[in-house]
């Protein structure tokens, strides 16, 4: 599946993973936290295929998951 990260996460989740396979968003976040521990120091919401989610969501290999932190600059 494709993982997209934005804002402050672009420095943390680098290089972007391209070979992640998992069943749901909780598993995905677990894998990402193991690989990029600094993720745990920041905040973000998750969107699957362009829709914001709040609960663990099943994932298909063709899905796109976005991790979106707030931006503060102006």
């Amino acid at each position: 599946m494709q993982v997209l990260v934005f804002g402050s996460l672009t420095d943390i989740v680098a290089p972007l993973p391209n070979d992640i396979i998992c069943d749901n968003t909780e598993q995905l976040i677990g894998l990402l936290e193991a690989k990029y521990p600094a993720i745990k120091t920041t905040t973000y919401f998750i969107a699957v295929n362009g829709k914001m989610i709040r609960e663990n969501t099943p994932l298909q290999p063709t899905d796109t998951v976005a991790l979106m932190p707030p931006f503060s600059g102006g």
């Binding site: 120091t41 920041t42 905040t43 932190p69 503060s72 600059g73 102006g74």
Partner: peptide
């Protein structure tokens, strides 16, 4: 969208991270 103000404490501003 971002319910927890306290969680924003670690996000850097333009002053710190550039724009």
């Amino acid at each position: 969208v971002f319910p927890d103000p306290a969680a924003t404490a670690n996000i850097q501003s333009c002053e710190q991270s550039g724009v």
